[in-house]
């Protein structure tokens, strides 16, 4: 599980849903879509300290020049380690918020020619980011 600490900078609520923007170390913003509102959860306050969680299997890796991605959650980094299986590969990306793990198809590692030292961007869907109170 990728887990990073930060605080809530903005909450946009509509009906039962909220889009929570968290600010992490280095000022990086991560958005999470949750079925909570400030009325249903005490932790939903601007300035509130929270952690963001997202699973390694929910991370998409792109090359830095890729454009036109629907997800606002994009973190640039450098690949620092790879652990390859036949079908899946675990990639560790060093970023300004800390190490992000991604589990992606081994074929994609070859197709994008991902290797240690290369730059990549980790993308996470806002609907896959969970929040917890610190």
């Amino acid at each position: 599980m990728n887990k990073f600490d930060g605080h809530i900078a903005e909450i946009q609520t509509h009906e039962q849903l909220s889009k929570v923007t968290a600010v992490l170390e280095g000022g990086l913003r991560i958005q999470a879509m949750v079925i909570e509102t400030p009325d249903t959860a005490d932790y939903m306050v601007e300035g509130g300290k929270i952690s963001v969680h997202f699973k390694e299997t929910e991370v998409i890796l792109c090359l830095p020049e890729t454009s036109g991605i629907s997800e606002p959650n994009q973190v640039q980094g450098i690949i620092v380690s790879l652990e390859s299986g036949v079908l899946l590969t675990w990639v560790c990306l060093q970023t300004k918020i800390g190490d992000i793990g991604a589990v992606i198809p081994s074929d994609a590692v070859k197709a994008l020619d991902l290797s240690i030292g290369k730059k990549a961007v980790a993308c996470v869907k806002t609907t896959e980011v969970m929040l917890s109170v610190i």
């Binding site: 079925i35 959860a41 299986g85 899946l88 590969t89 675990w90 969970m130 929040l131 109170v133």
Partner: peptide
Amino acid sequence: ADRDISGKFKFTGEVVRIEEAEIL
């Protein structure tokens, strides 16, 4: 149960088996 995690799909259960599958 860690009720503070925002995931809405939450269950408690008992671990009955752990299997290795490649890197996972």
